[in-house]
Design a protein around this nucleic acid. Structure first.
Lengths: 195, 195
DNA sequence: TCTATAAGTGAATGAATATTCATTTATATT
DNA sequence: AATATAAATGAATATTCATTCACTTATAGA
């Protein structure tokens, strides 16, 4: 039998994400996508059940990559400060290495599509839960509702990223959120957790 | 001459926002909108130049309301802590009083449409700039790049809101981010600014 | 080399899309 | 009451849409 050309699927996935990032969800039509990916419209339906399935698969792909990058070198036993800083660095790495993934993800999670989608659960939450439990046990932080320290630790980070994305264009490669500035923000933020 | 029926425009605006919040940008078609608003498709084009103009006008309307609510009772001369807390309360009020506006705004600002739109400048930034200048002069906070304290102060807030929106449904009226919990997060967050 | 089979296709389908236009309707002014 | 005028309309237009289908192509195993 004829063998599957993996470049085809990859091309479809890549172009789809690019189109969505550049033109939004209503900018993605199957025919335009097929054209951009150098493929027949019908071919898309070999790899994806339909348009919604394509979007869901893209989202899951992004989540997978995100989890992989973010958890690199991370261990729940790390000290609170060290672990959080690694998370910041990893997340920034993801944003820089996969800018289109990142923008697609931001767009998707703020859209109502997220409700209709069947998203896989990432191993992420459990990891972070254990991380905090260790930190509390060691007395490195107060015991408060998880959403509170989450919000301080990552809300600050993403807001910082956002500021840099809005001023300059990440796409034009002038996305320079220096480690120095990140560290400065981090050192201030981390004071929140002083007991 | 025949007089303009203001209910018609209001209905179009409201239904459009609802549809976008519920189904996303590609869920908004002019014909469905006309049907929902109880109006002929052609009527929409009396009030809006085209689809893009409609979206932009909606966004500007939201920004206007947002600015009004957020700056209520606010003065740049307030102490840093007091002023920030008022901002948190005002922003929460906006989210609770105008849930659809809020969700529309979140969706819009994360979409590529934001680049093509001609958005009016809000009096917001200048207000906040003055606010921080006063605080620095009074020695209530360190002098750092604005994006840093912005990120800590509001990144934390919006992240907290987001947590509550994802768990429960704001639409179902069980959006209960209590002032107590907000205050708890605020007290931790504000420690970042201790000199 | 032949064959079975899944990959891949271009053209077609009917539904939905944004926008326009000739026409009707309501009202402020005369 | 008559008129001028802009609001409002329903139907029509030409595109574009997601998806399907009958067909062709490539290749693994015989």
């Amino acid at each position: 039998m004829r063998v599957k050309d993996e470049n085809k699927e990859k091309s479809i996935r890549e172009k789809a994400m690019e189109m969505i990032v550049q033109e939004g969800f209503d900018g993605l039509s199957m025919q335009k996508l097929a054209l951009a990916a150098g493929v027949s419209p019908a071919t898309i339906y070999i790899y994806f059940k339909n348009r919604a399935d394509l979007l869901n698969q893209l989202f899951n792909e992004v989540e997978e990559t995100f989890t992989k990058v973010t958890l690199a070198d991370f261990s729940p036993e790390m000290s609170f400060k060290e672990g959080l800083w690694l998370q910041w660095k990893n997340r920034l790495k993801f944003i820089i290495d996969y800018p289109i993934h990142y923008r697609f993800h931001e767009q998707f999670r703020n859209s109502p599509l997220i409700n209709h989608s069947d998203i896989k659960i990432t191993p992420f939450k459990e990891n972070m839960k254990a991380f905090v439990q260790h930190a509390v046990k060691r007395g490195e932080m107060q015991k408060v509702d998880p959403e509170i320290y989450w919000s301080i630790a990552f809300g600050t980070f993403y807001s910082l990223v956002r500021f840099h994305l809005h001023e300059k264009s990440m796409m034009n490669n002038d996305f320079k959120l220096t480690e120095h500035k990140m560290r400065q923000a981090f050192e201030m933020m981390i004071k929140s957790f002083k007991i």
